[in-house]
Amino acid sequence: MATIRQLTHTNGLEYLQINSARSEARIFLQGAQVEHFKPTGKAPLLWVSSADEYQPGTGGIRGGIPVCWPWFGNHENSDWPAHGFARNKVWDWVGTQVEDEVVSLRFTLAPAQFERQYWPHDTRVELEVVLSETLTLKLTNINLGNRTVTFTQALHSYFPIGDIHQLQASGFANAKYVEFGAGPYPQEDDSVSFDKETDRVYTQLGAVQQLHSVNGTIEISRNNSQSAVLWNPWIEKSQRLSRFNDDDYLQMVCLEAANVREDAVNLAPGQSHTLSTSIRWLD
């Protein structure tokens, strides 16, 4: 029988521990961040740096799936926080449903948590997390105001890949990407390998990608998203990142469901938009 416990980390962050016949997971209320997901009988599907100390207000845990909202990356106003403010705020756990050992949890970011100097709009943002053999996240925005709002967003997923030198990421044919401010470049091959820092923002991208690693193959699918971010910091940037070990780049890669660049969302009054991603082991 599925169980859900609300617990407190030694450093003060509250989280939910979820166990069912299908999987186990941890979700931190700060950022509504899925930090751990493991299907029963299989390896964990998410990576977290051992250098993270799980401190409140530090920009999200370095791993799992931080929620980047209401913008992704650096804002055009350089003194605004990178990746928005949602990952630093404590979300409300507002509902749970369990059916056939599939656990669905809903979270919302209360308007009182909005930083109005950055986001003066009347919107509602919700996250649904569905736990079975597959992990699914659904990020919904609802425009409650009388003006169109525009935002970018990403579900900043970190994956365990064992050895970056042996990783092949596939499913990128016919897309375009921007990297380090240059481009867009056409994606000539379906697959991508890694031998240097990679920080690509893909657009016009198909709905399914795969990570073929020494740990197995992870499939990542997206809905209401034609853009995604593929990231590995490599050697030099790893030494500059906070809460990240110098050799962590060997063990992880990010492939993030997103709405960025020309895929930014323009949400008219009364409309809603749901970005979703599903993650699973194929073998």
Rank of each mutant, 00 (worst) to 15 (best):
V201W: 02
W71C: 03
K196W: 03
P160N: 06
L155Q: 10
G95P: 10
H165M: 05
D92W: 04
G63C: 05
Q6M: 13
Y158V: 01
L45G: 12
Y118D: 05
S78A: 14
L7W: 01
V102L: 07
Q204Y: 07
P56C: 06
N11E: 12
E219I: 06
N77M: 05
Q271V: 00
E24C: 14
S276N: 09
E133C: 02
V98S: 03
Q226L: 09
D122K: 11
Q166K: 15
V67H: 06
N19Q: 15
D52T: 13
A154E: 05
T123V: 15
C254Q: 05
V90D: 02
T40Q: 13
R106C: 11
T123A: 13
V48R: 08
Y202P: 06
P184A: 15
G31H: 10
N223H: 13
R22D: 00
Q30A: 08
T140A: 08
A82H: 10
S104A: 14
M1Q: 10
R124M: 08
F85R: 01
A154Q: 01
A169L: 12
I4Q: 03
R87G: 07
F151A: 10
S276D: 12
L250E: 10
Y54C: 03
D189F: 11
E101S: 15
A182G: 01
S272R: 11
D190L: 09
S20M: 09
A264I: 03
V149C: 06
Q239Y: 07
Y158Q: 00
E128H: 01
A82Y: 02
P70W: 04
R124N: 10
L167H: 04
D283F: 05
Y54F: 15
E35L: 14
P120T: 09
E115M: 11
A169P: 01
A268L: 12
A43T: 12
L105R: 03
T198E: 09
E35M: 11
R26E: 12
N223C: 06
I279K: 00
N245H: 15
Q30F: 09
F244R: 05
T96S: 12
E133N: 14
K237Y: 00
S50H: 05
I161S: 01
K176W: 12
K196L: 02
D263R: 00
R87Q: 11
E53I: 02
G60I: 03
L275H: 00
I235N: 06
H165Y: 10
L250F: 05
C68V: 11
R106K: 12
G12F: 08
S238D: 02
H9Y: 13
N19P: 01
L13A: 02
T136Q: 13
S191Y: 14
D122E: 14
